[in-house]
């Protein structure tokens, strides 16, 4: 039997197309509603980063290599970390201590914009975890697809390539 099997593109790609918006919407919902519902930045970021795996399942290595940029994702993760520190330093700018919630009274209880810097830091951490875990998944996928010749036709090897012997 052949060791390299052709991916059934229609079913897997249709399911990936169907579930990718659901995963992204769920992830961003959990990030956005971190201060008024269970969840938060970390969980929502990991949920949204699973879209990278769905994209890989549907479109293979080539699709993910043409759609995403690893260097940019790494830079965006650093930007998320810097944004967290800046939101935490708002207290210093206002004359209080570090991590002081200076905007805590700026919204109604239960609204989307409430709790001041808690939501802002929540968004920063969600963005950071989204890009960081996405970058980690891209690294793993790039390490998985180092076998030559399959990145152009969308197939993945079921077993490791043996040296010498041909397929039965």
């Amino acid at each position: 039997m052949k060791k390299n099997w052709k991916r059934d593109d229609l079913i897997v790609r249709s399911l990936a197309d169907s579930y990718l918006p659901i995963a992204l919407i769920l992830g961003f919902y959990v990030i956005l509603h971190g201060n008024i519902s269970p969840g938060g930045g970390f969980q929502g970021g990991v949920l949204a980063a699973s879209g990278v795996l769905l994209l890989y399942l549907g479109y293979g290595f080539r699709g993910i290599a043409t759609a995403l940029n690893m260097e940019r994702m790494h830079r965006l993760e650093a930007i998320g970390a810097i944004a967290y520190v800046l939101f935490a330093m708002l207290g210093i700018f206002a004359g209080y201590n570090f991590c002081r919630n200076i905007l805590w009274n700026s919204g109604e209880i239960g609204d989307l914009w409430s709790a001041g810097t808690i939501s802002l830091m929540n968004y920063a951490v969600g963005f950071k975890v989204l890009t960081g875990v996405g970058f980690l998944l891209l690294l793993i996928i790039n390490l998985l697809s180092t076998e030559p010749g399959h990145e152009h036709d969308g197939t993945i090897p079921t077993t490791e390539l043996e040296e010498g012997g041909d397929a039965e």
Binding site: I36, P38, G40, F98, N105, G107, A115, T117, I118, M121
Partner: peptide, 21 residues
């Protein structure tokens, strides 16, 4: 103190901001 309905988020991002950092 925080006006955040989710108590866990209030603890993680306000009372323990250094920890999350």
């Amino acid at each position: 103190k925080t006006q955040a309905v989710n108590n866990v988020t209030a603890i993680v991002f306000d009372f323990r901001g250094y920890d999350t950092l």
